[in-house]
Amino acid sequence: MNEGSKKTIRTLCFAVLGMFTFSFALVPLYNVFCEVTGLNGKIELRATNVKNIEIDNGRDVSVQFVSHNNEEMPWTFKPSEDNIQIKTGKYHTATFYVKNTTNKRMVAQAIPSVAPSNAAAHLKKLECFCFEQQELAPGEDALLPVRLIFDDELPSSINSVVLSYTIFDVTDYNDVEFTQHHNDDHHHDDSHHDGHEMEPSI
């Protein structure tokens, strides 16, 4: 085989490796892209630096809160108020009521989404229960706060924004402390695929 061929092979192998790496690089790239454009109504899962967006004479925006429990999430989860009127450039704190109705300790993660999606880039949150996971003991309840503000750049066609939170049960993804509960918890043994009748009775 001549030198030319070897060089071509080397280049192509690098290209293959490069594209494989690129596929993984798409993940952070996509997230940045989403946050910038508000694609999917995705908003940042961390507090933003919002020092300079407070203004006095903002316009009215109505915010509608929507909650949804993802599959297998038995908690009670509801906004304290369904609908609020706020002004752009003014902070507002809203709360969500959450209660662990089960008899086991569980961990939840709330995922926010904004509609219309082009409002997402203009919604900033100083504080949100979605920034971290929420762990509740059996029967425990809580009022979870979200402190939000719309910057004044919000497109003028948007007078009403829907802010939705979906809570997911992430108990199984969680820490060692939890594993203990998990192990003596009969609902979570590994034989689920086999269905009910295969489970040991209590």
């Binding site: 293959v16 594209m19 993984f24 993802n70 993804y173």
Partner: peptide, 30 residues
Amino acid sequence: IAVMPVLAGAVTMMLMDIHFGTSFFNAAGG
């Protein structure tokens, strides 16, 4: 050459989500 590695990447991410607890495509984990 350009796209088959991307497919390989996609299924590798799936594999990691299914077996190694990552959350590339799972909303619950971000």
